[in-house]
Write a protein that binds this DNA or RNA. Structure first.
Lengths: 340, 340
DNA sequence: TTGAAAGCGCTAACAG
DNA sequence: CTGTTAGCGCTTTCAA
């Protein structure tokens, strides 16, 4: 791999001159010299070493993303949004999955610090404990978070409370009263907010939310299936289920089918997120749409603002929109729908 | 951010000594000195600068992944597999999406070279042209590819021909004769191989594959829907469709439903990949399972072998397994199934 | 318009 | 066992 000295020698100039033409510096360089250098650069296929440059300039044009799991379509979509604007701005992105790894978050933060990342985008996931929070608080890194967190960083947020309320309200509006809720895990503020939205809508309509109707899942279709089965087999079966994400909603639908219940006839199901495949399901899933790609893009724009040191909105809130599709319908007439 | 000199000064030792304790060097360090240094490191929260280290050692502990699109569950799963073993081995991963970007591949290769990535994993995607191929050929970087490519690199491969043949053979076995195929785009070797598998199985059974029954899609559910509609509306409607990936299969199923056709009663549909949600569909999708996570993991292990310079398999082939689920069934009796 | 030289933070060879 | 020093490849004063 040729370096700047190789170029300089071959072009019979100093490395300073090479540097100037490579960086299109304002410092004037003779036209002829410039072309000679450019020619050698092409011949040698020279590329400046980003490590050396980064070391000197304290800027690496790299940012890190910390998420629970890239194989979750929700995060995949967000990451794509981040990358699209990062790439445009000349930034590379390193990816870090925290799930199933104790102390993952702090580990990655330190890693990114060592690598001199220019910034970090942090989304979702469970903050392991107060320790993590205090570490986060003292972070000197430039950080943007997606979603609500217990720490004060510039943030891109989603109205999860309102979104969940929308979904539940829809269920209420079409006549459901016994509405089950499959939520997310403890420690997730997103899970907390979506549960709050459920409770809010229920309370507003004066409907009792039986404690047995609320379950805590793990965001996966498997957990949706498990919890859906519990809900459906328990006493006082709900006529509708709102799930805190689409994957769990799919699990719940599968559970219903396994018990001989038709969706939406015997059970209405609503999801959350609107992942790409949701509208292709049968029945197409009624869900609360989050503009995931935009979420990612907005967070990266915010980080760019932070990095450049200019002014920028410290907070951006995205509203959700309810997508009413085939998986929800009004409950069957009074006689409780036994198995056909 | 404290550097090695700050630590050295505060601990009253030389930077060499600090370096030795940080790197657990074999070079002996007095026990007491060591503890003094360790204490200062903790006090200052010192972390070695990876850029400086990388510059000197010519090793960055970072590898790059070049794929078409992370929001495609197929790639997301592969990337997760890569990351799991990379992370374990102490490597960070940068992600690069090439789709919809002319010249993307070469651009990212150069970027990765500038950043001194220790290796590159390259999966899927269309090689823009002969130019890209020749650039790839001259690459001095350590590269592992996933899938078949026109270039000779260590590779992790999938038996796409055999897999597609499996799916089509299954359709044939249960009695279908008019079998449509929704393939991938031109320029993708994966698409080529899956199409070849379709043709192979058809030929083997002596069944004519009418040219009008073969379509080329773009891997997306939308294109599956479009092409499925074409297939179903055309003359001599197929009784079964094999799609080159699950997303297009879902699109085709949606198309069938839109035309009042029941799956699998009026139309059998098989997919390819077995993405996480496929078994949750209604009907659960019959598909050719690829161990995507393992594919990613294997590619990273191979790259680790390449990097360490040891011996390792230059090629690893993964077999596919057919998952027969609810979306395929035998064709209806002779009388061509009109709308009910 | 060009070049010499300092220095970013680190490791390792060498000397003591 | 510890320290001094060269140098990884680059940008940027400063001088010419």
């Amino acid at each position: 791999m040729p370096n700047i000295l190789d170029v300089a020698l071959k072009a019979r100039v100093s490395i300073a001159t090479v540097s100037r033409v490579v960086n299109k510096s304002h410092h004037k360089v003779n036209r002829a010299t410039q072309e000679r250098v450019l020619k050698v650069i092409r011949e040698l296929d020279y590329r400046p070493n980003a490590l050396a440059k980064g070391l000197l300039m304290k800027k690496t044009m790299t940012i890190g993303i910390i998420i629970p799991d890239i194989s979750n379509p929700y995060y995949a979509e967000i990451v794509r949004g981040i990358q699209d604007v990062a790439d445009q701005a000349g930034y590379a992105v390193t990816l870090h999955n925290t799930d199933k790894k104790p102390g993952g978050i702090t580990r990655y933060i330190y890693l990114l610090r060592e690598k001199s990342a220019d910034g970090i985008i942090f989304s979702g996931g469970i903050i392991d404990g107060p320790e993590t929070v205090s570490i986060l608080k003292e972070l000197k890194e430039r950080v943007v978070v997606i979603g609500r967190h217990e720490v004060d960083f510039p943030a891109v947020m989603v109205d999860n409370v309102g979104g969940a309320a929308q979904a539940v309200q829809h269920l209420l509006d079409i006549g459901h009263r016994r509405i089950g809720f499959i939520g997310g895990p403890d420690g997730s503020t997103t899970a907390l907010d979506r549960l709050a939205g459920y409770k809010k809508a229920m309370a507003k309509s004066g409907v009792m939310a039986a404690p047995g109707l609320v379950k805590k899942g793990a965001w996966t279709p498997e957990s949706g299936y498990l919890l859906g089965t519990e809900l459906l087999k328990g006493k006082g079966r709900p006529t509708a289920i709102a799930a805190a994400n689409d994957q769990m909603a799919f699990g719940a639908i599968k559970a219903a089918r396994a018990l001989g219940l038709a969706v939406p006839k015997d059970l209405a199901v609503a999801g959350f997120d609107d992942i790409p495949l949701s509208s292709y399901f049968d029945p197409p899933l009624t869900t609360v749409k989050i503009p995931m790609h935009d979420l990612g893009a907005a967070s990266m724009k915010m980080l760019l603002g932070l990095i450049s040191g200019g002014k920028f909105e410290k907070m951006k809130l995205f509203r959700t929109t309810l997508q009413v599709r085939g998986s929800t319908a009004e409950p069957q007439k009074k006689e409780s729908g036994k198995k056909s």
